[in-house]
Amino acid sequence: MKVENQQFLKLYQNYADMVYRICFSFLKNPADTEDAVQNTFLRLLQAAPDFQGAEHEKAWLIVTASNLCKDSLRHWWRKKEPLETHEDQAPFPPPDIDATLQALLQLPEKYKLPLYLFYYEGYSSAEISQIIHKPASTIRTHLQKGRQLLRTKLGGDFFEE
């Protein structure tokens, strides 16, 4: 099943928000996040992967978005173009960052994606392991460490609700 125009628009409508959240969790500002979302969907159009089903589409977008964001972070050191440079060209209103989101954004990269997929998208650790190609035990460890860090920041009863 190749990606056709109509299918692309459907994928974009269905998953743009999810890709945006994943990219924001890595890049932490709206301007870079928009760039990363565009690159992810552009990659989808150019690669035209042969998807096996809806879950495959979603997993492909999750992995591609996170990989593109990691690549972008690797090149940050020499990048000298702050967000202000573009602020007159396009409005990038910041999202409401509450204490929970701030704590989530401050987590090390390797914990963020598993926590997002587990607690927001509702994937199991086994499914996350298949999506991001890491052993399930590693995913469980990352979830556990991520939870510990969130408890430290947000209070001991954070996951008791």
Binding site: D17, R21, V37, P95, L104, L115, Y116, Y119, F158, E161
Partner: peptide, 18 residues
């Protein structure tokens, strides 16, 4: 498993329609 506080936090992060 979903967590309401995490869901609420992430629900605020969405691109605007524009």
């Amino acid at each position: 498993m979903k967590n309401n506080r995490i869901i609420t936090a992430w629900d605020n992060v969405n691109p605007s329609p524009e």
